[in-house]
Nucleic acid binder design. Structure first.
Lengths: 150, 150
DNA sequence: TTTTAATTGAGACGCATTATCATTTGGAAG
DNA sequence: CTTCCAAATGATAATGCGTCTCAATTAAAA
């Protein structure tokens, strides 16, 4: 259902007056088949490992394009570099919990919070275009370690 | 009530085994009497204008110290530089709406959202240490402009 | 005062990202 | 299948925020 062939990936770009170059297809395909939250350098290294012909500059430019067109979400977890994740259903917004010990990222969705955010914005006559919520702390595994149960 | 004299500002540092230098006092005093969300460069420029003797490096170091001790909150609105705000009552957490046109920052507090955040964390056995919520979009004034009421 | 560890200033440095520009290429038109 | 050109790429220089280094200064304890 959400599985697309090479052809449909090309369509993604062509439908937006963008050339469907091999480099763009490689970046998009990688993000579409990856559940992690990669940064630009990680994307670059993974494509290199797959013998793909691509440069860092193109990675950044492609990511910019993908974000502009809502195919990819750009995330800032406050560690000095941006991360990217696929954004298949822009309707189905989710937020993130980031473990400050192991770096693990847990996604969650809470409709009540979503509704309250919209409400808060309305109360201030603010037109909400996007929003982010990050919870920082210790994931269950790392919290155990800190309790001395190692 | 929340107005402190020079003496009490010095106490803030001395109570934490930190020297109460003029530079530190200047930075802290500026943040304590400023409702805006300044970045390091803006703080530096404002102190220069007041003929204060301070360097950029010291601004950054002082901010780091103030954040560590919870006197100041470090905020990331995703535009590539950090902003700082006073943090008088760490209990009373608030979040931010950022206008992407004029850059205005509106603070808001919603206890229900706070509770739900804590709940979500607990459901994942996640120990929440801090959290941020940012709503991006258009403030009421800038939204009017976009409706053609200019 | 003397003393010393903490702090400062100036600038070098690091790192993620963006800009530049000559070269290449996707894909539309013929 | 060629021609053609705007769009895209690669290599690398440049940018900008923030951190680090280290010699000189200073807060504040003795």
């Amino acid at each position: 259902m959400t599985t697309h062939g090479e052809g449909s990936l090309k369509k993604v770009f062509r439908d937006n007056q963008l050339k469907a170059t091999p480099q763009r297809l490689d970046v998009l395909k990688l993000l579409m088949t990856c559940s992690e939250h990669l940064d630009a350098e990680e994307i670059y290294q993974r494509l290199l490992k797959k013998k793909k012909n691509v440069s860092r500059a193109t990675i950044y430019r492609t990511l910019e394009v993908l974000v502009e067109h809502d195919f990819v979400r750009k995330l800032d977890f406050g560690d000095g570099r941006m991360r990217y994740e696929q954004n298949q259903n822009p309707e189905e917004h989710h937020d993130h919990m980031v473990c400050q010990v192991c770096g693990k990222v847990i996604e969650f969705y809470n409709p009540k919070i979503e509704d309250l955010q919209e409400l808060v914005a309305q109360n201030h006559n603010f037109v909400m275009l996007s929003h982010t919520m990050h919870i920082y702390g210790l994931c269950s595994e790392c919290a155990e370690g800190h309790n001395g149960n190692e």
